[in-house]
């Protein structure tokens, strides 16, 4: 039997809730870096839209005139400047992404959780190889239309 009878005057408890400021993430370096990390991928989206423009050009019309306009567009210095910043942003994404990936695995190797460095080595390896292949294909002119 468990019975509660409340007689006392209501308790004088008055918990105080601190307000949630909208700029909470400016208060702490860790949070600011988190928001930068989150927004770094916007440049990847920007680059994707550039590629999309290219695909639309390639798809419309049967000759390559629009495609050439797109290539010249890509060659223009404003686009290149944006893409330079974009490269740093995407590389920062790569860096933070590869830091987080080891935390999403828990393989046991010789009785111990596999150290995160193994995963990072594999990921940076993949980056290196993919880049090598892409550069090789692009530089040797194998790919053309």
């Amino acid at each position: 039997m468990f019975e509660v009878t409340k007689k006392e005057a209501p308790s004088k408890r008055k918990p105080f809730n601190r307000p949630v400021e909208a700029n909470w993430w400016t208060r702490k370096k860790f949070y600011t870096m988190y928001m930068i990390r989150e927004s770094s991928v916007l440049f990847a989206m920007l680059f994707a839209l550039e590629l999309l423009a290219g695909m639309i050009c390639a798809a419309t019309g049967n000759d390559t005139s629009c495609l050439i306009k797109w290539i010249n567009f890509m060659a223009s210095w404003p686009v290149k400047i944006v893409n330079v910043i974009g490269l740093f942003a995407v590389l920062y994404h790569t860096y933070t992404w590869f830091n987080l990936m080891p935390k999403a695995q828990r393989l046991m190797v010789k009785g111990e959780p596999m150290p995160g460095s193994f995963v990072k080595v594999a990921l940076y390896g993949a980056l290196f190889i993919t880049s090598l292949v892409a550069i090789a294909l692009a530089a040797t002119g194998l790919l053309s239309i």
Binding site: F47, L87, V90, T94, W97, A134
Partner: peptide, 9 residues
């Protein structure tokens, strides 16, 4: 994005 996009850019 992490592996393929950097070399593309």
């Amino acid at each position: 994005v992490a592996i393929f996009v950097p070399v593309l850019i």
